[in-house]
Design a protein around this nucleic acid. Sequence first.
DNA 1: TGGCGCTGATTAATCGTTTCACCAAAGAGG
DNA 2: CCTCTTTGGTGAAACGATTAATCAGCGCCA
Lengths: 316, 316
Amino acid sequence: MASIKQIAQDIGVSAATVSNALTGKGRVSKELADRIRARAEALGYRPSSAARALKTGQSGILGLVMPDLTNPLFPRIAQNLSIAAEARGLGILIADSRGSEARQTEALQQLVGRGVDGVVVVPQKGTSPAAPGLPMVTINTARDPRNTVSADHIGGGALIGAHIRELGHSDVVLLGGDRVSDVQQDRMRGMADGLGPSVRVRTVWGDAGLAALPDLVGQGATAILATSDLLALAALSELARAGISVPEHVSLTGFDDLPFATAMHPALTTTAQDVGAIAEYALEVLTSLIAGGLRPDAGHAVPMQLVPRASTAAPR
Amino acid sequence: MASIKQIAQDIGVSAATVSNALTGKGRVSKELADRIRARAEALGYRPSSAARALKTGQSGILGLVMPDLTNPLFPRIAQNLSIAAEARGLGILIADSRGSEARQTEALQQLVGRGVDGVVVVPQKGTSPAAPGLPMVTINTARDPRNTVSADHIGGGALIGAHIRELGHSDVVLLGGDRVSDVQQDRMRGMADGLGPSVRVRTVWGDAGLAALPDLVGQGATAILATSDLLALAALSELARAGISVPEHVSLTGFDDLPFATAMHPALTTTAQDVGAIAEYALEVLTSLIAGGLRPDAGHAVPMQLVPRASTAAPR
DNA sequence: TGGCGCTGATTAATCGTTTCACCAAAGAGG
DNA sequence: CCTCTTTGGTGAAACGATTAATCAGCGCCA
């Protein structure tokens, strides 16, 4: 309710002086500035973001496009982005792209219409959306040419792979959820790299892969490496149903260290991504882009961390 | 880039007419309106939300304050609110209150500063924040006097309780996570109601309660009713460690039907809340509040639904 | 003493849209 | 032929903040 004009009138100065005093830009005497600030405080003055946005052309708001908020990892990204944004005095407008690629571009358009200064996009599996003339960063994985920053999914896979190799496993199954996902592809590749050439590696996907697990164990596999914690949990259930116990008969790993990873029995060995660092870097690049900076030429990969728990052990 | 002025100049009319034509408010001839719309389309015109917000005093943006985005239920609320908001042409600005109550009021202030038209708040456990002179709805539970709409946690608990009673159980343990949570208190009360007076009910909380489960089963308990799926998963692990199997030795239930409920083994019996309906109602009230309507005097409860799966069975 | 430079503040324009008051032209009615 | 109403449109003032340009004093030095 209280405007800059109100304060100006109360103190008996011009609106410009109030603006200068409050933003510290023009030349205002120390005492007057103090009086103005005091009056502003007393009135509970909040600058109108609309007016400021109109005049300056900057809304101080970033858009965030997420593929599907029900995937438990994305909220963590959202939360960390929101923290990083707040530290810079920015707000975050969310738009859920709800599974469809069409909806994704629509969400982008809508954000543009709302006057956001830039957007952070976590693309739908297998897509690479573009915003026309709007500063934008992408969080995906190394495989995506438009990627700006992401966890080092390949490196994370390699950590898991090496961990399993060092435990002495030599016959391993890689379990993926969705072939279309670039992230999962990279995790797969990383795990294969980490396991090295001396290990027998078989790859299966989706529900069919899940169902095939008991057979594969019967054929000698001693470790199952899933591309996500949720998939690992499903695998654990499937194995339990078949009377196969973890980690006694077979080792099991996941990805992402979701909240339920410690609630499972056995607690799941997995890798954690530093979501905070990813969010921080994403906003770093985005703000520099908004300020007219150049896009860094290559995607930035934030290392993942191995979280060894009870679900992995040496093979019998 | 293209403004209303631009279009006006191109067509050779005044800015006011363009505004009228585009919003359909004033009196403009059909043909002229068409020409204006066509030109606007051609220029890719998007009204400046900042200018509109400044003039009308309405930003078309709602704020959303969430206690902790890492709780898997909240993202679902966020997603459904975002859907409901979009259907009304509104945007959603998120603010994470990150566990602390101080942060919660700060988040609220920040949203006010950004000029949101109203806020949806999911309060921190045990708190009831207020926004000064800002339309606001609260999603919590019946216990909260400020509650606007929520799942019927008591009714949901009653469903679970009745389900267990009908299976023939007569010695039941209720497992809660956090005493401070109004939601969990209501779920507890509902479950006790549903079980009825003829059933022996013992209540335990948190990690200590979790650790006590095997003993309680040893003392004759045949069912464990947790106030959340995550807690149920932890309980399952604890039981498995003690060699107690579900549902053979003891039945187990959760709350909320989170994604991993089906991935567990056995699949978890739980109750689902109709998050879509909650979000829809919340926005219904909020938009009416913004339009100057009156707050409904009582909180609205959306029924929960029982989702029977494999983790519950008749006692042996 | 007249001009220069500095400080501290003011004026006025501007961002893009909405909206109210007003007006010209044209047809209706007497 | 004169007034009254309707239609289709224009003008101009806001909304609240920012900012470049300007200006009034005042001290200082030559």
